[in-house]
Amino acid sequence: MGKATDKPSPADIITHTIIDKLEAGVRPWVKPWRPGLGGRPLRATGDPYRGINCFWLWLCAEGAGFNSRTWMTYKQAQALGGQVREGERSQIAIFYKSYSKTVESAVTGDTTDEMRRVLRSYAVFNCDQIDGLSAEYYPSRMSVVPPADQLPARAQAFIDGLPIKVDQRGDRAFYDRIADSITMPPVDLFSTRAHFAATLAHEAGHATGHPDRLNREFGKKFGDHAYAFEELVAEMTSALLGADLGLPTSHIDGHAAYIGSWLKVLRKDSRAIMTAAAKAEAAAAYLLRATGLGGSAEAEDKIREAA
């Protein structure tokens, strides 16, 4: 008998699905919701998912046409009085399990305890797959993008509180790492104020990599694709901020040229997308705390350590 095929890891499942989308010209973090989905995916507790789980469950919800933001396990659904419908298929959510391993030195023979992390997954269902839950788990459709002449309060507070120099001039949006400043086209060149704010969030994502902030720089691991990988982190940061601030992510159409580089990286390293998502989560957390919109230094430190 032939050798059984190894079961794909959670990282492989997520990465291969995202590669398929990228090859089709679709970036899962661009406009990752339809009216009704609103912001980040939520756990049964109401807490938002973070990191790669956020992007993965957005992708799953979009593909299945789910309207609810909330995902839960079979047991959680039952505990809340619900029942997963027969035949419904679960999706995975991931987490890292930490454990201690005793390692012996090949030179001295001494032993030390080292902390290790292993990737694990569990099965979750969207509330649209579950009958009998209370009404708040089944939201009605709503408009996500605000009118052109105003911004959601949190988005305006984000712009007002951004602790990075922003100059409005010219017709290009970019972050200058040496000058540590963002250049934006004037707001009246954008189709809506929401698109101006979303583009600013993208450039602010780049700014978090400055040595005085998160000191993010990709080296040999991503090789010649380091610049494109940084662009991926900024895109994903903008998508997370968009969900938290009520902004669109359809403004990122000008970065399709990076898709080829991303595909090469993801094909070579199935955990690269996890790295990008973790770095984006850390960047978003930094910016939200810096603008006074949530989080604490302690919580931010934990996110940064996980990244």
Rank of each mutant, 00 (worst) to 15 (best):
D128Y: 10
G36C: 05
G81N: 11
A61W: 11
V118M: 14
P32D: 06
K264G: 02
K264Q: 08
G81K: 13
L240Y: 01
M274Y: 14
I130D: 00
A256K: 04
R304G: 01
R27G: 00
V144G: 01
S90Y: 10
R43H: 13
S250E: 11
M184R: 12
R40I: 08
R34M: 01
V107G: 03
H225G: 00
Q78H: 12
V30F: 06
H251S: 11
K97S: 04
P28C: 13
A61C: 13
T15P: 07
D253C: 13
H210G: 02
S9K: 07
A277F: 15
A256S: 03
T15N: 11
H202I: 03
Y137W: 15
D176G: 04
D176K: 08
E235G: 09
L288M: 05
R89K: 13
P28H: 13
T183D: 08
D149F: 07
A278W: 07
N215E: 08
V233K: 02
Y286C: 11
L151N: 07
K220A: 06
S238W: 14
G65I: 13
S134L: 10
L42G: 04
S140K: 13
A307R: 02
Y96G: 05
L245R: 05
T249I: 14
A297H: 10
Q150Y: 15
I273R: 03
F158N: 04
D244F: 01
G51Q: 14
F125A: 02
I19V: 10
